[in-house]
Design a protein around this nucleic acid. Structure first.
Lengths: 231, 231
DNA sequence: AATGCTCTTTACGGATTCCTTACGAGCCTG
DNA sequence: CAGGCTCGTAAGGAATCCGTAAAGAGCATT
């Protein structure tokens, strides 16, 4: 499995129905879900569990949501996305000026929430120098730096080798057809040049596999394509 | 700090009525307003005028707004707030995943827009609080004084050499593509003049490297770009 | 007018990467 | 078992990319 350095999400909301809904939506994805049913518990969990993004309700029973955001901002820059039923502009402005990064009005589309969470995490990572790293087995791939490591040592990949690996990684676990690989790496005009693939999968195996003759990661699906195994 | 160094806002929208409305709203405040009536002009102005925040319409006549966001993200991290009449969720997700930081549906409240701009600028400032002195190996770089030292001795860099080094430093450890270097140092019109890079990386190496033929800091990624090694 | 500095442009040898080809192994099918 | 197919490997030439030096253009200073 591709360990996308899973993202920790803290949900601060007193309504358990909302928490359940969000957990059900986020759990199956690359998110680890934490829950707090009040502002004080939420503050404590931000400090202790260091989530990568906070989903914050405004109408909490103990402390006002905007106040929670303000207190978090005193010592943390974790992205805060406010989820609220209040759609008055002054509530939005108040929350945003209190330190929130984004504001969604309930009911919101799950897809939009996920997209805004991706934005928040993407930005936090860009700021914090920590790039998203993909790991499988003894291979580590830092896409932002465009670097690949095997057992901690950097392996140099040519542009085509790297592109090919990226297409396989983006489809990790799934079979990628010859045609798709050729189109995405070389361009639509090359969709029949399957011999390119034989050459370059071989080179990738030599650089990444312990035993290139018995590939552990880049496996062949005869007559169909290739697949990157990550388990 | 409360220093309100005026914020430059670039409005990319083909409707002059929208631009006029935004300018009228923003001009009296701490904002300097720039306008572009198309995507291409907008891209050029992002590169040349380095705005602090971009307000981007999706329905542009020349290039699609999401595409504009993607292209900006190839070499800049300026905050992008999309303003669009489209309220479909897939438009929002598409824009956000293309690199936009926020999405407002027209008609929006001016107060909310201002609050979201404050968030964007606040965050960009927090991220951009760069250490003015950077050291790696026997090289020391004082960004505030625009000076570079090697083994304690100052090395004189021409303006272009210095800019090039700065772009590499800002992306230390990462591979920076030819295109990104050219856009950031020479401007978007020069994105194909890769021979400039050959000349100037050579000059930088002669001034900074112990053995210019075996570069320790400025390394080449053939067919891709260059990378500053700091380890 | 001469000097010095920088930027741009060009040319060429060398290094790297890409493409092509050939051959043998394995596998299914008749 | 022969034939046809796909796949893996190796190797060499072709194409591309890179480093370097050098020379001209532009500009400011002297």
């Amino acid at each position: 499995m591709v360990e996308t350095a899973t993202v920790k999400v803290l949900i601060i909301d007193d309504e358990s129905a909302i928490r359940r809904f969000l957990r059900a939506s986020l759990d199956p994805m690359e998110y680890t879900v934490l829950e707090a049913d009040g502002g004080l518990q939420g503050l404590r969990m931000v400090a202790e569990d260091k989530p990568n993004v906070v989903l914050l309700d405004l109408g909490l029973p103990d402390i006002d949501g905007a106040e929670v955001a303000r207190r978090i901002r005193e010592w943390s820059s974790v992205p805060i996305i406010v989820l609220s039923a209040r759609e008055q502009e002054r509530d939005k402005i108040g929350a945003l000026d209190s330190g929130a990064d984004d504001y969604l009005t309930k009911p919101f589309g799950l897809g939009e929430l996920l997209a805004r969470m991706r934005v928040a995490v993407r930005r936090a990572r860009a700021a914090g120098a920590m790039d998203p790293v993909i790991e499988f087995g003894d291979i580590r791939l830092d896409a932002a730096k465009r670097r690949v490591y095997r057992n901690g040592e950097e392996v140099h990949l040519t542009p085509i080798e790297y592109k090919l690996l990226m297409v396989l990684v983006k489809n990790a676990g799934r079979v990628v057809t010859h045609r798709q690989l050729l189109v995405e790496v070389w361009g639509p005009a090359y969709f029949e040049e399957t011999h390119y693939l034989r050459v370059y999968t071989g080179q990738l195996r030599h650089k990444l596999e312990a035993d290139p003759a018995r590939p552990r990661y880049i496996t062949t699906e005869p007559g169909v394509g290739y697949r990157l195994r990550t388990d």
